[in-house]
Every structure is written in C-alpha cells, then in structure tokens.
Design a binder for these strands. Structure first.
Lengths: 124, 124, 124, 124
DNA sequence: GTGGTCTAGACCACA
DNA sequence: GTGGTCTAGACCACG
C-alpha cells in the first residue's frame, strides 16, 4: 500500500492519511474486506506517531469507510449512505470550487470535462 | 453586502469570510471596481477581530481577487490567471471530492448534473 | 441458542456475550437448570477466543446468573439478590439514561411507555 | 461547576467527565449559552491531562450537547434530535437494564416508580 | 499483539 | 490565550 506523507503540506498529517486511503478505495486499490495495517505498523512505516494514524482511522470510521473488527483490526467497509445525504456533504465544497472557477472564468464545459477526466482516471 | 459567519463551523472565520466574498463575486453581487468595507468597519459589523478581516483581505489579494489601495481601501479586481494555472489549483480539491463521490457510489451523471446546477445557480 | 456477536460494536465481545445470555434468560428462553454449551464449543461456534467465552461465563457467575460445575459445566442459576441491592446496581446506569433523555427533551410519559413496552416485549 | 472524577472507576475519565456534564445540563445547572471552562483550565482544575478534557468535549460536541465557538470556546448548546433517533439510541441501553431487572425479579411497578423518581430528581 | 486510554510537553493557527 | 496538531512513552483491556 503506497501512502506518501508531505510533512510540509498545509493539511494535517492525519487528513492526508485519510485522503490517501479514500483515494486508494476510489481507485480500486483497496476493497471492502481488505485489512489495513495496525496503527502501530503504519505509524512506524510512515515515520509518524501512533496517535496520528489512530486519528485518521477514527475519521475514516466515522465517515463510514472502515470498521474496526475487534479480532482483525481495521477493515475497509464502505457504508453507502443515503444518496441525498452524500450529495449534501459534497455540495458545500463543490460550491466554493465552482464559485472560484466562475470568478476566474473557467467555463462550464471545461469544468464538466475535468469531472469526466477524474471519473475516467478512477477507472469508473 | 450580506455576509454570514458561522462561529461553530470547522473552517476558520477568515476562510469563511474569503469564501463568502468569492461567492458574492461569482454571483455578480460584487464587481470589479466595487469597494469593500474598511477592515475596521467589517470587523465591527460581523463582531470579529480586525486581524481576522485583515487576513481574509490579504488572502483574497494574494489569490488575485482584490487590490488593496492606501486611499480607496479594498477594491475588487479579479485577475484572470492562466487557465492552466487555475485548473491545476482546482484539481487537487476536486480529486478528493470525486474520490469520495466514487466511494459512496455517486454516479458520473449525478456529479455532472450537480456541476451544471451550480453553474445555473450562479446565473452563468 | 441464538447468540449473535457484532465484531464491530463498541462493546467488547465478552460483554456482548454476557448481555445476550441475560437477555435469553429474561425472555424465558433459558431457565434455571439449563446447561450452557462448553466454553470450547461456544467459542468455536461463534468464532471467538476461548478466553473470551470464559470471561463472559465468569462475569455471569459473579453477577449471580449461573453456577460453574466441574462435571455439568455452566448451568443457569439466577440468584435473587436483595431488591435494594439490585435497584442500587441499576440506579447508576439508569440515571445517565434519564439525564440524556431529559437533555434531549424526551418526556416522562415517553420514557414510562418505553419501559412498559420493554416489559411487554419480555412477556412478563 | 462541581465535577468530581473517580480515578479508580471502571469508566474512563473522559466518559465520566462527559457524563457529569450531561447530568449538570439535565439538572438545569448548565443551560444553553453557558460557557464551559477552557480545556486547559478544566484539566488543571481536575488534575487531568488537557487531552482527556478535549476528548470529553469532542464527545459532547459529536453528541450534540455543545458547540465550539471560535471566539468564546466551548458553549452549551443542546441539539434536539429527531425524537425517534433519540429513542432508538436509548433503546439498546435500556433493553439490557430491563432484561437484568426481569431476571432479578424487579417488578414493572418498581421500575416505573424508579423512572418517575429520576424525573422528579432532575426537577422536571 | 491489538486498540483504548492517559500523561507530559511542544509548536502552530486562530482570534 | 484558545483549540488543533503532533510526538514520545506508558499502562491496560481485549482477544
């Protein structure tokens, strides 16, 4: 599992970690039922503190991306939320991106093409 | 100028402030040449610290949304960046949104429709 | 005997096990004198560690729900404690539930009805 | 604000802290809009670590008992959930209590009286 | 060996 | 000064 942390990035480490794992799921490199390394193992592999990994895992759990099985540790298990709920969650972030795009005169077509490419990239 | 701050939100106040102003520009409620209230005035109107407003204005200046003039104060002046530059800036955020969407099984069509609605909303 | 363990739950497995057995007794699906499966048998049936089942049985014994007999194994034997003692034990947990209910504006009537339904459910 | 921690209790400190605050709200000793001490202040007052208090506050926030105002710190703000949602949350805990009560032959009347007394105690 | 909890001490972003 | 983040190191409950 290839995870790379940028220690100089603006995003906190645990957020980067969370993002990378979500990306791996989207790319199909992590599937439902796959086990993640233990917090300690991943922490030492990345050279970060146990608690930082723990926080990322807690976040993923809370967002419905993984379950903590008391026997097997962290296991990917994506919970499909209500579509409406999920769309609402996306809305806020998206609105700001589109607002910026409009200010900077990125056309509707450019934006739609970008989304399309993203979906292609994730091989969907 | 209607700006509403959520003091309980996860985003820092100065980011919310920046976001709202970008949104007002995108909606056409603020145009090039329009003056923003003085730091002091906006701060007291919103009940926030002067530093906070200052930080938002600085951010907007740095991102090419306004000019700071000693005499006239803050004036909207959107700089049209290189399209590529702007697209790159958008890419990162967008990738995470799309990754989430794919994990939660939001279809490409739903996503494209959402973007379309956003552009409509901003009356473009 | 239908016992179902949720390996993702917050409660430790041995507590879940203990709870389920108490529930079975309350429902009248286990009676005084009934034998429970051997530690080894139940463990393999549920796919959990022997220690875990052992711990649950020990807990039940200590709380006065069963006797451990060298030859006959675990046998249900509910000890009727002093009513006061038992009420006191319940008090603490109940107080927190009621406190939460009050905070969230669940009325006294709703709460009493809930208790009533619970008693009905257990067919008492 | 009188909060007392039992360092030998089974419940983790942050849970005790959370419980006590919920109880104070239920008793009407903390109201919507009241400020809680800063994590550091409360931590030093109780002789526990900052992070422990932080965790309790995070839990209370997540459960809809308080908001973190970026200017004023932690402020009590009880979110009234859907009644159904809240009842469901209570159900699980309550079921186990009732199951125990039935096993130990606590009558329905005793139980209803107990709930009544609890509501009286919280002065509702 | 695993995650859960707790401590102590540190730096930074925010207001 | 506030909470947010991170580190290091420790003990315990669980399985």
């Amino acid at each position: 599992m290839i995870i790379r942390i940028d220690f100089n990035a603006a995003d906190p480490i645990y957020v980067q970690l969370r993002n990378q794992i979500v990306r791996l799921i989207a790319r199909g490199q992590l599937h439902n039922g796959d086990s993640l390394p233990s917090v300690r193992a991943l922490a030492s592999e990345l050279g970060v503190n146990m608690h930082t990994v723990n926080k990322a895992y807690a976040m993923l759990r809370q967002e419905g991306y993984l379950k903590l099985d008391r026997r097997k540790g962290a296991v990917i298990q994506v919970e499909r939320d209500d579509k409406k709920t999920e769309m609402t969650r996306i809305n806020g972030h998206m609105e700001m991106i589109v607002a910026q795009a409009i200010c900077k005169e990125i056309s509707r077509e450019d934006m739609l093409r970008l989304i399309g490419e993203m979906y292609d990239m994730f091989d969907f």
